[in-house]
Design a protein around this nucleic acid. Structure first.
Lengths: 344, 344
DNA sequence: CATCCCTAAGCAAACGTTTACTTGTTCAGT
DNA sequence: ACTGAACAAGTAAACGTTTGCTTAGGGATG
């Protein structure tokens, strides 16, 4: 293991003191350094391949310039987009990102949060695991800056939170279906136990109500957050309610499995069945796909989360806040307008 | 900014010395600590929410337990899969990952590499930018462990490298088309200037040769690495060579644009045109898509890269090596067998 | 009873920076 | 000739940990 050159090494080579080297390299103003000395230091540093240790300088109260971002999976583009968007912001402000995958496991999350405090990161962007609220108590105790993204911290008051307008997503998608004449639809969702996410389901019922559609015409099928579950729930809907004219997928991961089920059964979209999806993984409009979906504006959400964290880091005392990101309906060709047919 | 409790704080509260606290918390064997003292220390640490500073301990020669991984983009699932696969390995060995996005910009790459040496990471997994080989000279000078992934380091000898079998990818895909009776095909690729990647193109010509197909029946269209380029190159192929029966996409990002072009023009796959793609973004088999593609076994590749880096970190002197990851043809329904038709 | 080892825990140096403080020189203005 | 900026650079303490060394009591061995 090769050793890194230290300030002292550079000082010795330049024939000066470590302090002077530090001043030169940090370009402190208000210090008088002769051009000659400066040059000697610069040369020596270059010759020795000197690279300062952020670890050492952070000991003296300097920031590590590190932000941690914890997501539950990489496979879901919603999360990678949050990374991409916030990275842009952080990099602009000189921060590096430690990106960690909790795998949605509270134990892993706890271990990671602990390590991030050990690393003395300047802040954390966290999508909490579904059962891990208590993991953040340490974070809060040591006073680490944190912004929670997407899911709330159950049972915790007062935290910075940037989330999707889940109710809006559900309402928007359902409304689109009803406006296109659908009166009997299926909803495939995730039984998460997270109240905020459940708003998607409630929004659909509310939208139905507004369109004077009876709640028993909305067939809810909820299960795990996985492609397989999406497949199974779709199969169940088709079997139990063959007369539905549309399926609304509340979670795109499930939608992926669900659409596979439709394809396998030879169900044509939108001729036989209309489909709306919440979320915008690349595949909703890639290749031969052109689905109607509700865009959660993931990038915008990530950007807001990053800015909120930076605001905390910079101004010490901004009040807790909850930012709700608007969503947008993107109409593709997976919804068929069947209102005319009714009139015939 | 709340201050973290230090060893000394804990020591004071436990009525002992910092040294003893350190020994207790690190569970050093060979040290004799009475149960009573141990318990007092543990209690004090808990009461004060003590979290050790890895920065400070790394000063004393301890490892930072940090690995950096640099990729040129998050949007390409090839890279996120490498992250996922290597993360699994690293986490198992107690390392955290700093994930950085170079945006394929040599300047950004240089800045990031520099910061990573400042952070004193234990190792780096790097997908170099296309023009950034010289950025790694510092890394090599300071003796940082590094594994290069995917693309080579142009003009550099002796480095650890894990790459795709690019020749194999090209050969496999082309061979599949020829075996299905295609005799006049288009190839859409990236004019990268990277020799190793160009092997994909050469492989196609070699495969053609083996099938006694004249080189002028293979229409090469190369351009930028982007969806837009894929779209344009596809359009050009279709316009200039309307008689091709298949298009082989060497890079899935381009393929995404290319397939959009086909869809817009109402070209049915595989009825009107067969398609093969190198790479396996989710969309090749999502929704209503079922493309034939060459799987680069991204996860396996990431795993090998991680293990190679760990091997370097652990054994100091393992020899430079180049690992080539095999690829696999995954047959979907986007290639039509037209050999029978010929016989009629 | 002198020696040695086991147990227990403190002392202090070191790691690589940063920075407040100090020292010393030069020179313009009186 | 004296004062006091302006310039230049060195000293040393501090940051939070780790760890080799030391101290010291007590019990076992010879």
């Amino acid at each position: 293991m090769k050793k890194y050159a230290t300030l002292k090494d550079v000082a010795k080579r330049a024939g000066t003191s470590a302090a002077t080297v530090s001043y030169v390299l940090n370009e402190k103003e208000g210090r008088y350094i002769s051009d000659e000395t400066r040059q000697k230091v610069l040369d020596a540093a270059k010759e020795l391949d000197y690279v300062k240790s952020i670890g050492a300088s952070s000991l003296k109260g300097k920031s590590r310039k590190l932000i941690a971002i914890l997501i539950p999976q990489f496979e879901n583009q919603f999360f990678t987009r949050i990374i991409v968007a916030s990275e842009r912001i952080f990099v602009k402000h000189g921060y590096d990102l430690i990106i960690c995958n909790t795998l949605d496991s509270p134990e892993r999350e706890k271990a990671i949060l602990n390590r991030m405090t050990q690393q003395r990161v300047d802040g954390i962007i966290l999508t909490p695991t579904t059962k891990g609220s208590e993991n953040t108590t340490l974070i809060r105790r040591v006073g680490m800056k944190m912004v929670v993204v997407d899911r709330p911290l159950d049972g915790v008051e007062n935290f910075f939170w940037v989330s999707t307008n889940n109710y809006g997503c559900g309402y928007m998608g359902a409304n689109h279906l009803f406006a296109n004449g659908h009166k009997k639809i299926g909803y495939v969702g995730w039984r998460s136990g997270i109240k905020d996410l459940d708003a998607r389901r409630q929004a659909i019922l509310d939208a139905a109500d507004e369109h004077r559609i009876d709640a028993d015409q909305i067939h809810i099928a909820e299960g795990e957050f996985s492609q397989e579950a999406g497949y199974d729930l779709t199969a169940r809907l088709l079997d139990e309610h063959p007369d539905i004219t549309a399926i609304f997928y509340g979670f795109n991961v499930q939608a992926l499995g669900g659409v596979r089920c439709l394809t396998e059964r030879g169900i044509a979209i939108p001729t036989d069945l209309s489909v709306v999806i919440i979320g915008s993984p690349e595949w909703v409009s890639a290749g031969q796909n052109d689905f109607t979906y509700v865009d959660m504006n993931d990038l915008e959400l990530g950007k807001k989360a990053a800015n909120l964290l930076l605001a905390q880091i910079q101004d010490k005392d901004i009040p807790y806040q909850h930012i709700i990101q608007d969503c947008t309906l993107k109409a593709g060709s997976s919804v068929r307008n069947i209102s005319q047919e009714e009139k015939q």
